Amino acid sequence: MTLPVNAFKRALRDGRSQIGIWNTIPGPVVAELLAGAGFDWVLLDTEHALTDIPDIFAMLQAVAAYPVSAVVRPQTNDTVLIKRLLDHGAQTLLLPYVQSAAEAEAAVRAMRYAPRGVRGVSGMTRASRYGAIPDYVQRAEEELCLLVQVETAEALAQIEAIAAVDGVDGLFIGPSDLAASMGHPGNARHPEVVAAIDDAIRRIVATGKAAGILTLDPAYARHCLELGTSFTAVGVDMALLRAAASDLAKAFGRGA
Rank of each mutant, 00 (worst) to 15 (best):
Y66E: 01
L147G: 00
L94G: 10
A188G: 06
F8K: 03
F8S: 02
D247E: 15
P67H: 03
S100L: 12
R109M: 13
F231I: 06
A101Q: 12
D55L: 14
I25Q: 02
A132Y: 07
L86M: 11
G27F: 08
V118Y: 00
D247M: 12
P218N: 09
A7W: 12
A64V: 03
L227A: 11
A114H: 08
A244P: 13
D55K: 01
L146T: 00
I162M: 13
T2R: 12
E151R: 10
L60C: 09
A102V: 14
D247H: 06
V168A: 06
A239P: 11
A239S: 13
V72N: 00
L60D: 01
F8P: 02
W22V: 03
P26K: 09
V42L: 10
L86A: 08
L93F: 15
L95Q: 13
I159Y: 07
Q18T: 02
R73D: 12
R73V: 11
A188E: 05
G131V: 15
L216P: 04
D45V: 12
A195S: 08
I162F: 12
E32I: 06
V30D: 00
P185Y: 02
P185D: 05
A155K: 09
G89A: 13
T92C: 14
M1S: 14
D87R: 09
T92H: 10
Q91W: 13
R139D: 05
